[in-house]
Write a protein that binds this DNA or RNA. Structure first.
Length: 783
DNA sequence: CAGTGAGCGAGCTTCCGCTTGACTT
């Protein structure tokens, strides 16, 4: 029987630690927090110094009673939750809830899961740090106050079921402001000139190399004039400079950087990355995946060194210690890294293997030498002609990797969205080996029209990056926050289809002829970018106007400063909250009391030609709508929801009026009317009681009878494939193909069928047996 | 790879951070 009970936060961690500690220690886990403020209740006694009212959530009650039992039996309980604010609170809640006696309770912490670290921790226990616990209480209570006082304001002033919070509202603000920047962006035209030159190398052979003119032209006329003038020019190498460059590897992965790289390199969503990483962690392949630390254990440093020496040699080795700089970092864990550095790849699903390899490469690269690069810049002077502009010359740059170092295994991607063609360097081009003063020959030159690009919209991952920079949110909340703001319909993912755009190109060939033509170019398609919805815009503007303090980008940083003071024992947590509440609560009261003669976001479009009533748009309790007739004009205003892609900010009177045409009858098919409309689940076509969804991208208003009939017929064809078979014994019972594979449908209930089985051979009796077995299993579960 | 297909009302909704499990028919 074990005399010692060790409690950590994660079961996977418990399993690992148990192996280090021998039979006298039982290691178990709390699965995170075991107690919290009541779920559906404010649960803070404001009058009584912000006393929090805690409860053990129902899904934790069994766990808690098991922990209690185990704690009673043990001679010593070791609270080994993380060393940060939340971890300290977990230990404190455990000691309270499990009623642990001080003489048989110890608090221990470790930063890496190694035998040494844990044995050391056991040798140096401490008390629970009440100041740190208080800091957590302050954090928890403040977030509850903000969330539970602000959200109801939105229910009244904008739309029910909305939410606001210290983190999510600021995340939405980032997206809203970026979108407005993009709207106000004025694209500027310019002409970028490139030139291809020929120079003789040592063997007397012509080598072609690319250059770019050091300035761009504003107009086509200027560009054309320039190309015209240089037809008679001579060119010579005026300057050559060589600069050695050192490039360093990126730091090991944190949650945020892993999400970013997996998004860029593997195209994973933030939540996808986290769930794959979770599986790798549970399988013991990688260290913990929710971390803000870039630190690697000495164990990992040693193993990486061995790996590099064994496979690449000493000149590739450079042991590095990384220091975490990010705002609000709490350093409870290591960076995300492979558990065993000599395991270059793993067994598993393709996505697991790819994510693992990404982590392995990033980690090993972080322990490798700098890459040595020689960057050569060559200036080509334009001689013999008088140019309209001064200081014009061509520039060629070449990069030669002298020593690859860490680049041998890993190269970090970046968010730079600039088109390849728009880059101003020619990195990697081989430049001819020539002296200053060498004459070179122009082979061809080209001026291409370019448009300056607006700042990029956020992706999930680049939003996480920005949030981390601002210190908003934690590794464990990045993914949930991003799904919350999408669930609330504040923002949505947006895919802009690739667009063709016409670009002017002026070409000067080596025959001296200038040709101008238009070429088609595909504009970089914007995939998976976050854009604000109407609701997001209205909520953001309302909150920014009434609660600028909460919406400020450094609100979190400011309160974090206070929490740090509380943790250091330099500030009382109730005083801190008192000050905050004094500022915040009156704003809430004031906002609720404020009379608004119009709804937030409301905009008048004009008057209805038929009735003369006012036509306006606003956010109703069911989302964005057009309304005909104001309260003062009629008791029965008419409403119509906006279509996907329409916005209350941009919709015109004509477009708004059109929405009232639905539902409309297009004509007859097989003697029955065909109706097009918009329902709860989007636009549809309906005939004879059967509904068919109208595919994305097609406007229901543009539908004609022929289109509708086509849809109905293809739907019928699809449905016929759905039915696998029926039984004479019971015609009501159908065997169908569904989204999750084959299933049986009877009396409105569905039963799953085994995949990979010859369904045709299943008899009626087999099916009934399957149904009965499944009913029984469901019964059992209820109990 | 399905199925669903209003109407502008009453009552409910909501936060952030720590963790994993559910199993869709």
């Amino acid at each position: 029987m074990a005399n010692n009970l060790v409690i950590v936060e994660s079961p996977a961690k418990a399993k690992t630690i148990e192996k280090f500690l021998g039979a006298d220690y039982k290691v178990t886990s709390s699965y995170g927090h075991i107690r919290d403020l009541k779920k559906h209740d404010f649960s803070i006694d404001i009058e009584n110094k912000f006393q929090p009212i805690y409860e053990i959530p129902s899904d934790k009650q069994q766990l808690v009673s098991e922990l209690k039992k185990a704690a009673k039996k043990a001679e010593m309980v070791w609270l080994a939750s993380d060393e940060d604010r939340e971890g300290e609170a977990i230990s404190w809640h455990l000691s309270e809830v499990l009623e642990l006696k001080p003489e048989k309770t110890r608090r221990i912490v470790f930063h890496e899961i190694t035998k040494n670290a844990i044995l050391n921790a056991i040798k140096t226990p401490r008390e629970i740090d009440q100041n740190l616990v208080n800091a957590q209480t302050a954090r928890r209570v403040l977030d509850r106050i903000v969330g539970f006082e602000l959200s109801p304001v939105l229910w009244r002033k904008v739309k029910p079921q909305l939410s606001a919070g210290r983190v999510q509202s600021v995340a939405v603000r980032l997206i809203v402001e970026r979108e407005r920047e993009i709207q106000n962006f004025k694209s500027e035209e310019s002409y970028r000139v490139t030139g291809t030159f020929a120079a003789k190398d040592a063997n007397g052979q012509d080598i072609l190399f690319n250059t770019e003119l050091n300035q761009r032209f504003k107009t086509k006329a200027e560009a054309e004039e320039f190309l015209n003038q240089i037809r008679n020019a001579t060119f010579e190498v005026k300057e050559i400079s060589q600069k050695p460059l050192l490039r360093q590897p990126a730091a090991p992965f944190t949650t945020s950087t892993l999400q970013q790289e997996a998004s860029r390199k593997l195209r994973f969503s933030v939540s996808q990355t986290m769930s794959i990483a979770q599986r790798l962690y549970e399988a013991g392949k990688i260290t913990y995946m929710r971390t803000d630390s870039v630190n690697l254990s000495t164990l990992c440093l040693g193993a990486s060194k061995e790996q590099i020496l064994a496979t690449m040699g000493e000149k590739y080795l450079k042991t590095r210690n990384y220091i975490t700089h990010s705002k609000g970092a709490q350093e409870a864990h290591e960076a995300i890294r492979p558990t065993y550095m000599n395991q270059t790849s793993i067994e598993g699903t393709p996505v697991e293997r790819r994510l693992y390899e990404l982590i392995w490469k990033r980690t090993i690269a972080s322990q490798m030498s700098d890459a040595q690069i020689e960057k050569t810049t060559m200036e080509i002077a334009i001689n013999g002609v008088k140019l309209a502009k001064e200081d014009l010359h061509f520039v060629a740059t070449g990069e030669v990797i002298k020593f690859d170092g860490f680049l041998k295994v890993y190269m970090e991607s970046n968010d730079d969205e600039t088109l390849e063609a728009d880059r101003t360097d020619f990195g990697g081009t081989r430049l001819p080996n020539v002296q200053i003063g060498t004459a070179v020959k122009l082979d061809a030159a080209e001026a291409i029209q370019r448009f300056s690009q607006h700042p990029p919209r956020y992706t999930e991952a680049s939003l996480v990056k920005k949030m981390e920079e601002l210190g908003i949110g934690r590794p464990s909340t990045y993914a949930p926050t991003i799904s919350t703001i999408q669930q609330r319909e504040y923002v949505e993912k947006y895919d802009r289809p690739a667009e063709k755009c016409k670009i002017t190109r002026i070409h000067l060939g080596n025959d001296g002829k200038i040709k101008s033509n238009e070429v088609e170019e595909t504009v970089n398609n914007d995939r998976g970018k976050l854009v604000p919805t109407d609701i997001g815009l209205v909520v953001n503007d309302y909150l920014s106007e009434h609660f600028p303090q909460i919406m400020s980008y450094d609100f979190t940083a400011t309160v974090e400063g206070d929490f740090d003071k509380i943790a250091d024992g330099k500030m009382d947590w109730t005083t801190c909250l008192g000050e905050f509440y004094e500022m915040f609560h009156p704003l809430v009261v004031e906002s609720i009391a404020e009379r608004m003669d119009h709804k937030a976001g409301e905009r008048v479009l004009g008057t209805d030609p038929k009735t003369g009533y006012t036509i306006s748009v606003k956010i109703s309790r069911f989302g964005p709508v057009v309304q005909i007739g104001a309260q003062s004009e009629t008791d029965h205003p008419q409403f119509a929801s906006l279509q996907k892609g329409q916005s209350i900010n941009t919709i015109t009177l004509d477009e708004a009026l059109k929405l009232f045409q639905l539902p409309k009858t297009l004509g007859e098919f097989e003697g029955f009317p065909v109706v097009v409309g918009v329902g709860r689940y989007g636009p549809y076509v309906q005939t004879q009681g059967k509904y068919v969804s109208i595919p994305k991208g097609t406007n229901p208003l543009d539908m004609e009878l022929a289109d509708a009939v086509k849809l109905i017929e293809s739907k019928r064809a699809e449905d016929s494939k759905k039915l696998i078979k029926t039984f004479d014994e019971e015609p009501e019972l159908q065997m169908l193909n569904g989204r999750f594979g084959p299933y049986l449908a009877r009396n409105g209930k569905n039963y799953r069928l085994p995949r990979n089985r010859d369904l045709e051979s299943l008899t009626y009796a087999d099916c009934i047996a399957i149904i009965e077995a499944s009913e029984k299993a469901a019964e059992k579960k209820k109990k």
